[in-house]
Design a protein around this nucleic acid. Structure first.
Lengths: 123, 123
DNA sequence: CATAGTGTTCTATCTACATAGTACACTAAA
DNA sequence: TTTAGTGTACTATGTAGATAGAACACTATG
């Protein structure tokens, strides 16, 4: 459950991404509760203030809703989750295409790479 | 020529990546000169101190060599460049595979995505 | 030699990020 | 009502990144 953070990027941004990813994967259910700020901070090994910042930003984006004294909950809109999944898939594709183009690989090498991906991803 | 930096990551790290990318693409030739610290800083719109930090790190990694009073030069070892290319390709593949897996897409959607990539990247 | 253009070093300042600690406001449940 | 568990707010501290500005050391060139 613990996370290894990229030290070159703000932790609170990486927390936001992790929460969205878990919602997309179904680890956190639509409209379901999230761990409390303090509990999630303990789990991820960060300061509660940092976790609070991440939750506040997630709420600002409408991805979660928090009710004082009750806790935080994933959005009740299932389309919001699915939209996030599609968005992430498109972003991943765009990033990858840009990276490959910038490497000026030979066409044969590109085909190899795509085959390797197909094997790995469907395994 | 100007670069748009990701505000969530240190500029000097993004400069390092940009220089390596340009060397891989052949924009900067093996053993060839780089723009001076001040000139490159002007081109990229950053402070010369920030550019100097990027150049110092690139030298520490052995990717460039700098000679006081003369300038900075890409490594003379062509294998160093090619190694960088292969390394970046492998890293891009690994990142993409991990991203796709984490999205829990349906197999059909994965095939679509790979087809789209094949089309885009060979276009 | 003088000059211009290199890389390098240093101090100072500003901002964002992360942490520690404390306190407060609200809700649910005993 | 009391208690425990929520989210929220605040001050303080430390660190890293980026900038500004100045100065220094070296090299090539005229």
């Amino acid at each position: 459950m613990s996370i290894s953070f990229d030290p070159t990027r703000p932790i609170y941004l990486q927390i936001i991404e992790a929460v969205k990813k878990r919602a997309v994967q179904g680890i956190y259910k639509c409209a379901g509760p999230l761990p409390s700020v303090r509990e999630m901070a303990r789990q991820m090994g960060v300061n509660p203030n940092t976790m609070s910042r991440a939750y506040m930003e997630l709420e600002r984006e409408g991805f979660i809703s928090t009710r004082r004294g009750e806790g935080s909950f994933i959005t009740e809109d299932p389309q919001r989750i699915d939209s996030e999944r599609r968005q992430q898939a498109m972003a991943a594709r765009a990033r990858f295409v840009e990276e490959i183009r910038s490497l000026a690989l030979e066409p044969g090498r590109i085909d190899e790479l795509l085959e390797e991906i197909k094997d790995e991803v469907t395994r």
